[in-house]
Computed example of a mutant assay.
Amino acid sequence: MLVDSHCHLNFEQLSSQLDNVVARAGDAGVGHMLTIGTKLREFDHVLGIAEAYDNIHCSVGVHPHEAETEGDEVTTEKLIQLSQNQNVVAIGETGLDYFYEHAPRELQKKSFRIHIDAARETGLPLIVHTRNADNDTIDILREEYEKGPFTGVIHCFSSGWEVAEKSMEIGFYVSISGIVTFKTATELQDHVRKLPLEKLLVETDAPYLAPVPKRGKSNEPSFVAHTAAKVAVLKEITFEELSSVTTDNFFKLFNKIERTAK
């Protein structure tokens, strides 16, 4: 079994054909999906999807792009309250994005720390988005970890090696998206070769970042098989072994989910 550890099933490209998307995922061997919250004002839709399918769970959080537009709504107490639903298994995605800078950096940092506080209080894993913000991401994770432990994952990893190294030092996992299949992603491919198997996850980030050979199409959970195949080649193991290890890792991290299938 494979798991898509990060997708956005509430986005129009996928939600408009959700039954078919879920069926195709099953046909591709994808047994579980985690659909991710990015806006509190859309959380009910995200949660509704998780409640409608036995093999889908969700997270609650505010993407760094939304740190200004939703900043007043993001509190530790609010995130903790929304996470009490049995289908909510993670906090985020949150983090820092200095590539687009859709929100001021200081507001992104504030939101990031609030999410970390909620993850620490609930014991749920934190889903971290980081782009062009390596140093600040590392600094905040380190500073907050010193206040009390928490766990999580660097999603859609494409940063410098130090982000992976420092996050794994505090127990984080690292999730690989379809970017790893791109011809230009030679640095990321080198990083994947170094990543320990016991810290690896795979994801789509659907509907974005469709892997080779699906470039140009809307991404969906079934396509995680192509990413897994590429990672298996880079790690010099079989596809079956990669699938087994990353699925085990997923259920270890997101341990609020009752695993019913191997």
Rank of each mutant, 00 (worst) to 15 (best):
Y98G: 04
A50M: 08
I91Y: 07
L40V: 10
A164Q: 09
L126E: 02
S83F: 03
L79E: 00
F251V: 13
A90H: 02
M1I: 13
D136P: 00
R24G: 08
D54K: 13
L14N: 07
G61L: 13
S244W: 06
N10C: 11
Y98M: 09
T94M: 12
H115C: 02
S59H: 05
Y145W: 14
A232R: 10
R259Y: 11
E198G: 00
G123C: 09
S218K: 14
A119V: 06
Y208N: 01
Y53F: 15
M168D: 10
T246Q: 09
V192C: 10
R193L: 07
G178H: 01
P104E: 07
S243F: 05
L14H: 06
I80T: 12
H155Q: 03
G92C: 04
E93C: 04
N85C: 08
I127W: 00
V174L: 12
E51T: 06
F250K: 03
M33V: 12
S175R: 06
V60F: 09
K194R: 15
T181R: 01
K110N: 11
P64V: 03
P213K: 06
T227N: 09
N132S: 13
Q86W: 01
V128K: 02
S83K: 05
Y173H: 14
C7Y: 12
L34D: 05
A52S: 15
Q86E: 15
F150M: 12
L195W: 08
D117C: 03
E66I: 02
V174Q: 08
L141H: 01
E220D: 11
K235N: 04
A23Q: 14
V245I: 15
E258D: 15
C7F: 12
F11C: 14
P211G: 09
E51F: 01
S83G: 10
K262N: 14
E77D: 13
D4P: 02
G152T: 04
H45W: 01
L40Q: 07
Q81T: 10
V224W: 11
S222F: 10
L195Q: 07
E42K: 13
Y53N: 11
M168V: 11
S177I: 04
A210R: 04
L47H: 12
L18A: 00
S222I: 03
V128M: 10
H63K: 07
N219C: 15
Q84D: 11
E169F: 05
L234G: 06
G160M: 00
C156S: 15
H6G: 09
I127D: 03
G71D: 00
G178I: 08
V74F: 03
D19L: 11
L141E: 06
V74G: 01
R41P: 02
F112G: 04
D190A: 15
L126A: 03
E198T: 04
T186Y: 03
L201C: 10
E68D: 14
G95H: 03
A28E: 07
H8T: 12
A225D: 03
A206M: 09
L209W: 08
H6L: 12
L234A: 11
V163N: 08
A118Q: 05
M1K: 12
K262I: 12
E169V: 05
A119G: 14
N55W: 10
T94W: 00
T186M: 03
K110S: 11
T75H: 02
A67F: 05
L195V: 05
H8D: 14
S111C: 08
L107W: 02
T260D: 12
